[in-house]
Design a protein around this nucleic acid. Structure first.
Length: 473
RNA sequence: GACCCCAUCGUCUAGCCUGGCCCAGGACGUCGGCCUUUCACGCCGAUAACGCGGGUUCGAAUCCCGCUGGGGUCGCCA
């Protein structure tokens, strides 16, 4: 029996960075141990679970490159909503074994017990009223089912693969509900049955689940099942220090994608949140599969900041194979142009020039704008500063020189510029900058000769003419 | 409130288990410089942390205790 890890999202919204990171750790651990990584949809909350969310989550997982293995005997991804029968069966068994009992206390009554316990300065919990009443299945009053927490010999401690020795005394535990009055299973119970049935060997999840582990352990014990290994990953927190809110869309995988971060950068970023491997910073997916260990996961919560993500983004923009970069960039090109943009050889060249000048794909698409746009809109401030009347002669001379050039490459372009600046006794910048504004519409672009080359002679001349026309005489 | 957990530069972190190599290393950020036709890239340099107080020890970021601060969990939600 090899390693089996799982990621079990509840489809109630987009995949957030915390979920993505949990999924990544599960994925990486499984890959590292040559095991399998499976998915499960926890959609027992019918109110909040939607198919759209589910699609969103799976899409996000695919986008960051985490492929899951299909679960045998299912359509690939089991969903809790389809496993009700199995849960009931397991609940019945637990009752039959005497490890669970029926409870007819109403929610209001239980609420009262909790209030009273709290008033006494104790942990709010159920007072075990029905524990020994031996209520049968034919009870007239509606009943839920509670686990009978053993007084002694309860297995509530475990050696966490990340947190170390953990757990609490059984005496601290409540006789918690495992099945609602309608017979359906509570999340904690369903999870145990699912993990067992799916053969999950390692449960790697967020620290917020740590306190519920003893209860799950008790269920394993009651059912006489061997529990999996547990590994609880420290939380991801907001810059303030609070737990990251699930509702914060700014940290959804989708929003990172929309902001122009490539999946390689996002994956690398979340990998380094709570995990490290010596002094290394750059990790490809293959690196992670090869190097990931639970021992490399730290103990303290990590704040989510954009700084390093932006740096990683820049790094991947610089180093990604061209094909991949272009594939990521296409949608941003289309969005910026408001039409499908064809990436021809010149645009390819431009993209290469833009690689080390862009922090995100959004920025890259914007910087390339001058190339794929027909009607260039020139930035007013730039024009006011660089397209002044006194520059007319220089620009006019340059235009003429460019028009008569035999070739359109750097070797031909540079002498043409040199001639003009020599005639006027100015630095190259004094000519290059106005030209840049005229042909790109702004003050920022790749080096002037390359920019000219990319744009081509015809469009360059046309834009110079337009600029000349707009300069007051 | 009860139970549990965490604590190294502004941020991500190495080191902690197996005390000395750590007057604490890397990365991001920030600042300065070099390069330079704009913007960047690149290169060089600087900045900045062991929360506090007690122990133990020849010696503590590392072990122990306390404090402080922060967080998580306490549902017939997932």
């Amino acid at each position: 029996m090899g390693v089996v890890t799982r990621y079990a999202p509840s489809p109630t919204g987009a995949l957030h960075i915390c979920g993505a990171r949990t999924a990544l750790f599960n994925w990486a651990y499984a890959r590292h141990e040559a095991g399998s990584f499976v998915l499960r949809i926890e959609d027992t909350d019918r109110e909040r679970s939607t198919l759209e969310s589910e699609k969103l989550v799976l899409e996000a997982l695919e986008w960051i490159g985490l492929a899951w293995d299909p679960v045998p005997g299912t359509s690939g991804i089991p969903r809790q909503s389809e496993r009700g029968v199995r849960y009931r069966e397991a609940i019945a068994e637990l009752v039959a074994r005497g490890h669970a009992y029926r409870c007819t206390c109403t929610e209001a009554e239980v609420e009262g017990m909790r209030e009273r316990a709290k008033a006494r300065g104790e942990k709010p919990r159920y007072d075990r009223t029905c524990r020994d009443k031996n209520i049968g299945p034919d009870s007239a009053k509606p009943f839920c089912i509670r686990l009978r927490v053993p007084d002694a010999g309860g297995l509530t401690r475990w050696n966490d693969l990340i947190a170390g020795p953990a757990g609490e005394e059984a005496s601290e535990l409540d006789d918690f509900v495992i099945a609602r009055s309608d017979g359906s299973a509570i999340y904690h119970f369903a999870v145990v049955v699912d993990d067992h049935d799916m053969g999950v060997s390692h449960v790697i999840r967020g620290r917020e689940h740590m306190t519920s582990t003893p209860r799950q352990l008790l269920i394993y014990q009651g059912l006489d099942w061997e529990p999996p290994q547990f590994a609880h990953v420290p939380l991801l927190v907001e810059p303030g220090g609070k737990k990251l809110s699930k509702r914060q869309d700014s940290v959804s995988v989708q929003s990172y994608r929309d902001r122009g971060f490539c999946p390689e950068a996002v994956l690398n970023y979340i990998a380094r949140l709570g995990w490290s491997h010596g002094d290394l910073e750059i990790f490809s997916q293959e690196d992670l599969a090869r190097l990931f260990t639970l021992a490399g996961v730290g103990q303290s919560p990590s704040q989510v900041h954009d700084d390093k993500l932006i740096w990683l983004s820049q790094h991947y923009l610089k180093t990604l194979p061209r094909e991949r970069l272009l594939a990521h960039l296409q949608r941003f090109l289309d969005a910026e142009a408001r039409r499908p943009v064809t990436v021809d050889a010149a645009l390819c060249r431009l993209v290469d020039l833009l690689r080390e000048r862009s922090k995100t794909l959004v920025e890259m698409a914007a910087l390339a704008r001058f190339y794929y746009v027909d009607e260039l809109s020139v930035d007013a401030k730039a024009a006011a500063k660089f397209l002044k009347p006194e520059l007319r002669p220089r620009l006019t001379e340059l235009r003429a020189a460019l028009e008569s050039l035999d070739a359109w490459d750097r070797a031909a372009l540079e002498p043409a510029f040199q001639k003009v600046i020599a005639a006027h006794g100015v630095e190259l910048g004094a000519l290059a900058q106005p030209v840049r504004v005229a042909i790109t519409g702004g003050t920022v672009s790749p080096p002037i000769f390359e920019t000219l080359e990319v744009l081509g002679r015809e469009r360059t001349l046309r834009r110079l003419d337009a600029a000349l026309r707009s300069v007051p005489a």
